[in-house]
Nucleic acid binder design. Structure first.
Lengths: 188, 188
DNA sequence: GTCTATAGCCCGATAGAC
DNA sequence: GTCTATCGGGCTATAGAC
């Protein structure tokens, strides 16, 4: 039985994620993590014995699961490549709240973040690029070109999030999403 | 007369820049800024009475000047659009050390950085996009499409820096630069 | 203009009561 | 499992000697 008076593990992770996602690893103070979750610091240490690094690792794993659910999951099923990539695009819009959110791949890759967090992050990015490349190949694009386009797509999404944040305007992100499928599947 | 025993203003700003560029605004502690410049904290306060925020503002202004020198300067002169954009591309390779360096537009746009720094940053990004769009228009591309391509170029450069940093591999950055001019000037 | 020394605060992390 | 209280240390910033 779940104990309703206590915050659920999933809710807790979601709130921790929000903090790390807006201020990064070093910027996320235990005071802020405590405030945003409603748990005292000691309670956070009870749930995450490894402290802040432990929290960030769990957040990254949870975000990875969300990403797989919203973004990857459609890539493996049946359906045309165009349809699968369109599902991914819509998942990205949700995942990044239409460009309002930053990506942990950006915030967690800066110096000062522990390597135990940066390493799985790189793996996740590579997995994403590879999964998209497989779908692009299905559409008849040769493997080298498919890999190039997939990397370019991820580059554009990351860049659009940075530019949107820096300008305080989500149009760059929405512009990239609008062309994402066509750019991946364009004729050679 | 310059006093040779004291670090020059330009050298000082360059060393401060290196710190902010690798760890961001909040991550740049006065201890690190002091260590990397060889000046005691009190001496830094003598030169930058506004403290860390003052240093970051001066660093941003200096980086803006470097950017204008290396990246913008070629855009206004004579020469074909293709040649001018190629000069910009080579300037970018230098400016970002072939993808090894991060961009302040990324690091300084995260929450926690004072607005006095984030605001001029957004202006600089917009100016860059506009300057490139003018050259693309010179090549006969219509203004709306030129604006779109220029924004997309900046998006790609920013994204390539993020992905290169996250993967620990500068290939994404070099790939973007290799196609930058052709993508801007492609036939409609 | 640069230094050493330190104020005052917030940091990550822990002790121990309940 | 959560709390309050606190530790030692690093933080930004300043005082004051030279």
């Amino acid at each position: 039985m779940a104990r309703p008076e206590s915050i659920s593990k999933s809710d807790l992770l979601q709130r921790l994620t929000a903090v790390f996602r807006s201020v990064g690893y070093e910027g996320a103070s235990l005071a802020a993590l405590s405030r945003e979750t409603g748990l005292a610091k000691a309670a956070l240490y009870h749930r995450f014995p490894g402290g802040k690094e432990d929290m960030a690792r769990c957040v990254l794993a949870e975000v990875g699961r969300d990403m797989r659910g919203l973004v990857f999951s459609g890539l493996d099923g049946e359906g045309s490549p165009r349809r699968k990539l369109a599902v991914m695009r819509d998942g990205l819009a949700l995942f990044y709240a239409d460009g309002e959110r930053s990506c942990l791949a950006d915030l967690f890759s800066v110096e000062g973040t522990p390597a135990t967090i940066r390493t799985p992050l790189a793996g996740g990015l590579k997995a994403w690029i590879a999964a998209v490349a497989r779908v692009v190949e299905e559409a008849g694009i040769d493997p080298a070109e498919a890999a190039r386009r997939s990397e370019d797509m991820v580059v554009r999404v990351q860049g659009a999030l940075v530019v949107s944040r820096a300008l305080g305007d989500t149009r760059p992100f929405r512009n990239v999403l609008a062309r994402l499928v066509d750019d991946l599947l364009a004729l050679p």
